[in-house]
């Protein structure tokens, strides 16, 4: 340390001028996008001013909750929703697991099969449940079957992707040992990969079931049956006390399922 060094302090500059310009450009761009979006969605101020009033009004109409409506209508609809979700999850697993094995590079060392499987995974996942539902409603008409199929097909991508990642993490040594024994490719999958990825399988199955219950509620809104349809009917008939009943039921069920899934995952997997 001497005085001359103290006089000529090293200057530290966090960003180069080019970086500063780039940062400003990004910031400017963001502001422009928000401004443009606000202009496009045309907010009508009058509707905003009386929003609190509307909320209070709706709350009043939702109360008291029409509990009597639960057993005759909401409960059967809820059971149907759960059935749609269970069906969809099982179908999704049956279709998604084989595709998952085909997509895993270690279990299927054939690049074009990997490519096809990956395409199926991306395609099924990127088409939303609602689009699948439109497709199946056109084929089988509205109802629980179309709903279950729509959710099942949308599930393939998620299930297959998560599962193939699990397969790719399987212990290579164990597989090598089975290869050394003279096992066939099918035997490697059944006696090697499958036991190793069983925890992944259960975790994916539970997680997807949880998601599918919520999906089947939404699908009900467009006529696929279940509690969503009960909600839609109540809204159409302006029976707000019944709407609140359905919303409350959904809320309780979702929390319940979340708790069950978390507990099972914690204890079993």
């Amino acid at each position: 340390m001497n005085t001359s060094a103290a006089a000529e302090l090293d200057r530290w500059i966090r960003f180069t001028p080019a970086q500063r310009l780039a940062r400003f450009a990004v910031f400017f761009g963001l502001v422009a996008v928000v401004a443009w979006a606000l202009k496009t969605i045309e907010i009508i101020p009058e509707f905003l001013y009386d929003a609190p009033e509307q909320v209070v009004d709706m709350g009043r109409r939702m109360w008291p909750v029409d509990w009597a409506h639960f057993w005759p209508v909401v409960w059967p609809a809820l059971v149907e929703t759960m059935h749609i979700a269970a069906m969809a999850t099982i179908l999704g697993l049956i279709m998604g697991i084989p595709v998952g094995f085909l997509a895993a590079k270690n279990a299927t060392p054939v690049w074009w099969l990997n490519a096809i499987a990956r395409f199926i995974l991306v395609a099924t996942r990127s088409i939303s449940t609602l689009i699948w539902a439109l497709f199946f409603v056109a084929m089988f008409g509205p109802g629980p079957l179309s709903g279950a199929l729509a959710i099942a097909f949308h599930s393939i991508g998620f299930i297959g992707k998560m599962f193939s990642e699990g397969v790719e993490e399987a212990n290579r040594g164990s597989i090598e040992a089975l290869q050394a024994v003279g096992a066939s490719r099918m035997q490697l999958i059944l006696m090697g990969y499958w036991p190793m990825v069983l925890p992944t399988f259960w975790s994916v199955a539970l997680f997807r079931w949880d998601i599918n219950v919520r999906e089947s509620v939404v699908l009900g809104l467009v006529g696929a049956g279940g509690i969503g349809m009960a909600l839609n009917a109540a809204i159409d008939l302006i029976q707000w006390d019944r709407v609140s009943l359905v919303l409350f039921t959904i809320f309780v069920v979702v929390i319940l399922i979340e708790t069950i899934v978390t507990q099972i995952r914690k204890r079993v997997i």
Binding site: S174, G192, P195, L198
Partner: peptide
């Protein structure tokens, strides 16, 4: 094998 390479969950 060095690392035994059993299928551990069987």
């Amino acid at each position: 094998f060095q690392e035994y390479n059993l299928v551990e969950r069987l």
